[in-house]
Amino acid sequence: MSQKPQVKKPDSQKSNTVSDHSHDKPQVRFITIDTEDAGQRIDNFLLRTLKGVPKSHLYRLMRKGEIRVNKKRIKPVYKLALNDILRIAPIRVSEKTEPVSTGLNIVANLEKQILFEDDRLIVINKPSGMAVHGGSGLSFGLIEALRALRPDARMLELVHRLDRDTSGCLVVAKKRSALRHLHEQLRSKNVQKFYQALVKGHWPTKLTRVTEGLRKNDLKSGERVVIVDNIDGKESETRFKVLERYRGATLVRAFPVTGRTHQIRVHCQVSGHPIAMDAKYGNEDFDVEMKSKGLKRLFLHAASIEFTHPKTEERIKIEAPLEPNLEKLLTKLVRE
């Protein structure tokens, strides 16, 4: 049976009669790893447990031996095992990090976007424009907002990711065992994700498969783009099917067999049919035309996800409806 991590309480919490100022100081913490937390990398565990402590600071503490497992120094890639005893030296957690307010509209509206929830999982229809997690100038992302909405959840972790501008099905695990189960399914290609994209021009019916290799490329500006590279790039495959034809555009269904960064976007671009309003890989003229019809975002939507439920072992398929503004745009286009 799963036990909660045993956190050794500092002396200041055991007694209210401490005469010195030791209660102002951070204390050494001991955590015993249980079945839910076993198997994950220590850096990921610490980032979740010690909220507000920067990753670089955690890495430095591990290097200096301030964080140890079973009295030994460990590296950030160390995988925690059942009954490991974690010793964490006193750390002052920055109080600057503002808690995510559940009063914010963007956070409160997430509750309405939940498509499925049980004791193992949440599947949410992620809004376009919201990053999956905070960082690089963002105070919070979807996962931080969900944690604010579910303060009693012992853990909430992303099972996979979606680009900031992509909307649709995103799976969040509520238990470490569910996260491991779903990650194994992703590795063994047992998860099926179908996307809908509005692309430029007449997508050929015969073009059902794109297999261009992809490589991440960092520009001098610091921006990351993905380029086609069939020599040094990673093998990639996306399957396509035409859903609807419009004058000057096609609505396609995309099924990524592999899960590379920006895969669908680059595979559409290299095929000569970039996605509408794609700031990195789009076509300016096509975007101007779509903007004039009211499109304000990337037209890429994770329409459905299918996987084996980690508890019941049943196959389940969750579908996310298109945002009303995307539906509205389609009604403005002339069908062929």
Rank of each mutant, 00 (worst) to 15 (best):
V107Y: 01
L58C: 02
P90N: 11
K64Q: 15
L86P: 02
E66N: 13
P99E: 14
R92L: 14
Y78V: 06
K75T: 09
L82G: 01
M62A: 00
V69Y: 03
M62W: 03
I106Q: 10
G65M: 07
R68P: 03
K72E: 11
M62V: 03
V100H: 01
N105V: 01
T97H: 11
A108C: 04
N70P: 02
A81F: 04
V107L: 08
P90G: 14
I91P: 05
A89W: 10
A108K: 12
T97D: 10
R68D: 08
K72W: 01
I74S: 06
E98T: 14
K72L: 11
I88M: 08
S56A: 13
I106L: 03
I67E: 09
V100A: 03
V107G: 01
R73M: 04
V100W: 05
L80Q: 06
S101D: 11
T97A: 07
R73I: 05
K72D: 09
E95H: 15
Y78K: 08
R63H: 08
R60M: 04
N70S: 00
H57D: 15
K79V: 01
I74F: 07
P99V: 00
P90Q: 13
V107P: 02
S94I: 13
Y59I: 04
N83P: 00
A108M: 07
A81G: 04
L61Y: 13
K51Q: 10
L82V: 04
I106T: 07
L58E: 00
V107N: 06
A81W: 00
P99W: 01
K96C: 07
N70M: 03
L86D: 00
A89T: 12
S56E: 14
R73L: 07
T97L: 06
I106A: 06
K79C: 10
V53Q: 08
K64G: 03
S56C: 05
V107A: 02
Y78N: 05
M62K: 04
E98M: 12
V100Q: 00
T102E: 10
T102M: 10
